[in-house]
Structure formats: C-alpha cells, structure tokens
C-alpha cells in the first residue's frame, strides 16, 4: 500500500462517516428554523350558572394576526382574485354578510348562510354541521369550494409568492416562507383575535345589575324557564354541542331542505342535527338559520319555541326574549391588534 492508497482510504472512511452524520441530520431535521410565534392566550372569568362571559383580555401574536388580517382581506385567496374572506364576513357588522346565501365564484351561491366569524374560536366545531374540528381545518372548505373561492392552497401560495409584500411579510416571520401551515397560522391567529367581550349580558353576569333593563331581566327568566338555556349555554351561548332541529315539534317547511350533519355523515340518526349556533351578536347576524330564510329575530324565536320546546310563545314572551338577545351583542375588541 502506498501513501496515496492510505490517504484515499482515510478520506473514503471520513466521507462515509460524514455521509452518515449528514443523513442523520437530514432525517432528524434537527436544524431548527428560528420561528417567532406565540399562541394566543385568553384570560377567562368564570361565574355560577350556565352562561359564561367572554374573556376581556387576550394575548395574541400581533405580527401573525396582522398578517392574517391582510390575508383575510386579500382577494388573492380566490380563483379570480375577486373574493376575499372579508367578502362574506364583515368583521365590523356581526361577522357575516347579511345575505341569506352568500355569493361566491362567478356569482354562484351555495346552500347555507354564512355564519359569523366573531367568537368563532369558541365554537367547539366549525360550519353549521360542525364538520370541521378547528378553524384551521374549516379554511380548507371555502378555499376549495367551487361556489366560494374555487381555488387551492397551491394556487394561492403561487400567487402570494409573486406578491412582494406577502413574500417579505411571511419570510420575516418564518424562514419557511409562504406555505399552507403558515397561512393557516396567520388566519387562525387573526380569527382568534376576533372576539366581542363586554356585552351588556356579560356585565350582568359579572355582577352589574344595571346592565340589563327590566324587560331583559324578564327575558332572561323566561330564557331559562322555557328551556332555551338547555342548548344555548357556555361561553358562546351555544356552539358547544349538536342538537336536532325540530327536536320536539314541527319546523317550518322552508327550513327542511337541509338535513344538517346527515348530509356529511350519512348517518340516519344524524338527520337535522346542527351545531347549536352561538347567540353572541345574534341581533346583528340576520337573516337566521342555516339557509338564512328567516329574516326577523322574533320569527326565529317563535320557530325555536315551537320546534325545540313545543311552545307557542306569547307576543310578550317573544318581545322579552328578543330584548334579552340584544344584550348578547358586544364590541369587537379593537385593541387586540
């Protein structure tokens, strides 16, 4: 063996070891990207009783939330660059668009009313039928729905990458740049900041007896004694389990075109099961029900009393409960961003 051979062997051997180490690092992906993100945190206040106030304080990663806000308002998220999330969810006007059925890609419409994005983070599941377990999962729906944005994450990423603002904004926050994970993180963070605390009813819950007027207090009594409270409870006054539309009695014909969860699960027992919708800001989110066919809040109250509780509510009862529902409206937390 010459010195040349020896050197050659040694180099080969070192190369082998380097390869193994390289392979290990690659597989392990131990090289951690420096990523600045802090998950949103709420400070809840708990009270006795079935309804809980919304948190008045939250810590949100503002950089990600601002990026999410920009994305929320960006029409680049739709196929023809004409629709943004904000097209159907007016965050300052109840979080929906006031239409029975929203208008999407090429003026097409779906079958369901657009639900509010406000306080959506406190819903246990998303969509009317609750088929999405989280906000992040929910986003896949409108992006891909051919009658909504009619596009795909891939297309959106390509478009955003051509946009200098989004490129630099994303790379500032994450070395991975623009990808589905980061887009969802930005949007979810933004949505997490969209809460409406300090409603009159919340103040009442927290001990301010003057927060509700006499009618509203009567309405609150009836809300409980009639049994509305059975489903509309928790921090979001609903939105934490499924209930069957027309549980006890008949529902109007116009609400029967949609079988709710059954459309998704195809389970016989799931017919007309809907996620109990939140009553937060309900006074601002007309029209009502999954297909938006009920325009008036009073009508909605009457339908609920009849179908869910088997009661024909008196005008005074409806008026009292309606007054109570107005106290569920809060203000969007502007200081969040």
């Amino acid at each position: 063996m010459t010195l040349k051979d020896f050197v050659f062997l040694c180099i080969s051997f070192v190369a082998c070891i380097v390869f193994i180490i390289g392979y290990h690092l690659h597989k392990n992906k131990t090289i951690q990207h420096e990523e600045v993100f802090s998950p949103t945190q709420y400070t809840f206040q708990t009270v006795e009783g079935p309804i809980q106030p919304l948190p008045k304080e939250l810590v949100v990663d503002k950089k990600w939330a601002r990026l999410g806000e920009a994305l929320f308002h960006s029409t680049l998220l739709s196929k023809e660059n004409d629709i943004s999330c904000a097209s159907c969810h007016f965050v300052n006007e109840g979080g929906d668009d006031g239409l029975a059925i929203s208008i999407g890609h090429q003026n097409q419409s779906g079958t369901r009313n657009s639900p509010t994005v406000l306080n959506a983070v406190f819903n246990f599941r998303q969509f009317w039928d609750g088929r999405a377990a989280s906000l992040a999962e929910q986003m896949d729906g409108p992006i891909h729905n051919p009658v909504e944005m009619a596009t795909s994450w891939q297309e959106v990423i390509e478009k955003l990458n051509k946009d200098s603002y989004y490129r630099s904004a994303f790379y500032k926050l994450s070395p991975e740049g623009i990808n589905q994970k980061n887009m969802k993180r930005a949007l979810v963070t933004y949505l997490e900041s969209l809460i409406t605390p300090d409603a009159a009813f919340d103040r009442y819950l927290l001990g301010d007896q003057t927060a509700l007027n006499e009618q509203q207090k009567r309405g609150w009594e009836k809300f409980q004694s009639f049994g509305c409270i059975t489903c509309h409870q928790g921090v979001n006054i609903g939105g934490n389990f499924y209930q069957k539309l027309g549980r006890v009695d008949l529902v109007p014909e116009k609400l029967l075109n949609d079988k709710g969860l059954q459309e998704f699960t195809k389970q016989e027992n799931h017919a007309f099961l809907f996620k109990v919708p939140s009553l937060r800001n309900v006074a601002k989110t007309a029209p009502y029900f999954h297909n938006g066919t009920v325009k008036e809040l009073q009508e909605a109250i009457r339908i609920m009393g009849r179908s869910q509780l088997g009661m024909e509510l008196a005008d005074q009862d409806v008026a009292d409960i309606e007054a109570l529902l107005h106290s569920f409206s809060g203000e969007l937390m502007s200081q969040a961003l």
């Binding site: 006795e48 079935p50 309804i51 809980q52 246990f124 409870q233 928790g234 921090v235 934490n240 389990f241």
Partner: peptide, 8 residues
C-alpha cells in the same frame, strides 16, 4: 350547567 368542558 354548560357543556364547554365536554366540548374542550
């Protein structure tokens, strides 16, 4: 009184 915990 409410089902938030169950949901969580």
């Amino acid at each position: 009184p409410h089902y938030d915990e169950q949901a969580q």
